[in-house]
Design a protein around this nucleic acid. Structure first.
Lengths: 346, 346
DNA sequence: CAGTCTTGTGAAACCGGTTGCAGAACTCAT
DNA sequence: ATGAGTTCTGCAACCGGTTTCACAAGACTG
């Protein structure tokens, strides 16, 4: 019962740096310190030495060893980014924003997926710590706040989609409720009264807030809330398809569907299509997130837009600030409704 | 004109490890070597010491410092993964596969996007090297083979979508031509003769191969190749929309469109929709890649499937093998045609 | 021209792990 | 009781950078 070493069981020989800083120093006839100073520009060095060192560096195409530098500096220039699934178009947008902004600052991103699952999220977080990331960005996961605070003692954390006041931590809330009311007011303004809602998974905070927005808007318009008009999906096409199909089979009348996110709306589209119903002639549909592909759905989807890409950029800015010991100033991006062709006046 | 240091201009104080291996050793009354050996299970250690060391580790929730370990071991347990855009559903699928397989082996993935652009790809590769990755996976980029061979001298590389025989390198070709002929034979078998092709960007090797497959299938069926039936897109929805629109406006008759990838097909869908044409009644459409969302397009899209996710898994297996000094044995996944509702018999 | 102030440089310590080597302790056979 | 063989453990060196500190050389001041 020997515990296998980390990683793969078989390993090759221990790899070495082909050319080290001291090799360069020897070749240029200076000390290692001088080479280090030239590379980092930390202290002024005489022109002639600088030239000969730079020549030696170029000649051997020398690149400092990352781990060694990381050890000495206490930094890895790496940020861990936790999303729920790297292949979800929603998170992909966010990751893109993060990547852009981090790259510009010289940082690289370690992406991992939590799979909407506390255990996986926790595992990812530990892995980030083990990899020595300088900071972590969490896209709204299901990890309890207490756990996050715990991790935050080891490295700064930026979390989107929730409010979490704690040291070494910064939150970028998502305006779920406001967005949902925007969508609903649009439908109500078009004369719709019987509006179904395809919700997300039951325990997810974003899902609950969007549901709250749905109810709030109904109340505002003095339309009574009918529980049977709410069906639960899974944030993905499949869930939207199933939920909408059930809703149709239940026989409850409705003239519009508000979906908790765009992927759910795509599923709803297919369910309506199979039932021979046309969007928007027979049923109006509104999504949430305004994914890039929503401009290309048939018909192009009306959706609530709070740019996830910008959210990612802001999150990246915030984590960089935290890492450098500054106070982040990033704000959540604005929410707006993008009206396309999936909704019509009754 | 002072050169700013790497990363952000302002940095906080140099962070230190809160509790080190030697702290644990002192607390447990053993030497640092013993603690290291217990953590890695490299050598047998007496039960009593083991217990007291593990107690101390648990008490302080000690985690070894990644950079220090990386320095000593010469490994970072990190793999660089280059795709063209992290928010492209195509690459996202592949990244997902890579992530799964790497995580299982204890490795983490550093993802970066090359943006279909040689300069960016090169920059990413350098960044990977600078970050000390143990290996690199490249999803079919536009970097010339010579450049790749160059990078391969510093660390092993697995590349998909091309054939590149070189030491420290492994290729997983994509069966573009075969896939394209499958799609075309399907359309031709349904009685289509005037088949348009929406190609990708002109210089991309995958695009050229798919075009070659298109022509090959035409020739096989003794249908003459008509250059005006080929339009160029950009691998994305937008390009498919524009190209199809132009094709329609050109007045050339066609009964089917084969698109270089699914995203292009989504754009074609929208163009046809706007022109009042129905799929598949008026025009049949076939895509390539079988993205997950293609089951949910309206109508669900017939597409060539060579699972990118599996490709990613295979690539991950191959790079792990290379890193451990073994010979990779991974094969490209099989290609097949998935027939859905976007094609019909003439 | 002596004394103080800069400025550039190298030796050595340090970051926090891993590991070769040698010695201690313990087993077992003679 | 003694020697050989085995198992466990600690010392010290090492991985490859960065940085403190001391010092020498040159610039400036009175």
């Amino acid at each position: 019962m020997k515990k296998p070493p980390r990683g793969e069981s078989k390993r090759g020989p221990r790899p070495r740096q082909l050319v080290t800083l001291r090799d360069i120093a020897r070749e240029a006839g200076v000390s290692a310190s001088t080479v280090s100073r030239i590379i980092n520009g930390t202290v002024k060095v005489s022109e002639e030495r600088k030239a000969s060192v730079e020549a030696a560096i170029a000649k051997h195409d020398f690149r400092p060893h990352a781990a060694a530098r990381g050890l000495a500096l206490g930094r890895t220039l790496t940020i861990g980014v936790l999303s729920q699934a790297i292949d979800s178009p929603f998170y992909a947008e966010g990751l893109r924003g993060v990547e852009r902004r981090l790259l510009a600052a010289g940082y690289a991103a370690l992406f991992m997926s939590g799979n909407w699952n506390v255990a996986d999220e926790e595992r990812c977080m530990r892995k980030f710590i083990d990899h020595g990331v300088d900071g972590i960005i969490m896209f709204s996961g299901c990890l309890p706040n207490a756990a996050i605070k715990d991790f935050a003692q080891r490295c700064p954390i930026v979390v989107t989609g929730r409010h979490l006041p704690a040291p070494q931590t910064y939150s970028l809330p998502i305006k779920d409720r406001l967005g949902a009311t925007l969508a609903m007011r649009h439908l109500i303004g078009l004369g719709h009264r019987r509006i179904a809602f395809i919700a997300g998974s039951e325990n997810h905070p974003d899902a609950l807030e969007r549901l709250a927005g749905y109810r709030e808007a109904l109340q505002e318009a003095r339309i009574s809330f009918e529980p049977p008009l709410v069906a639960h999906g899974d944030w993905q096409e499949r869930g939207g398809l199933i939920a909408t199909t059930q809703l149709l089979e239940s026989g409850r009348a409705f003239t519009a569907v508000f979906c908790v996110n765009d992927q759910t709306a795509y599923g709803a589209y297919l369910a309506l299509f199979r039932a021979g119903l046309k969007v928007p002639e027979d049923v109006s549909v509104v999504g949430f997130d305004d994914l890039p592909s929503s401009s290309y759905s048939l018909p192009p989807l009306t959706s609530v837009r709070q740019s996830v890409r910008v959210l990612g950029e802001r999150a990246a800015e915030a984590i960089l600030a935290l890492v450098c010991g500054r106070r982040p100033q990033a704000e959540s991006p604005p929410v707006e409704l993008v009206v396309r062709d999936s909704t019509r006046r009754l």
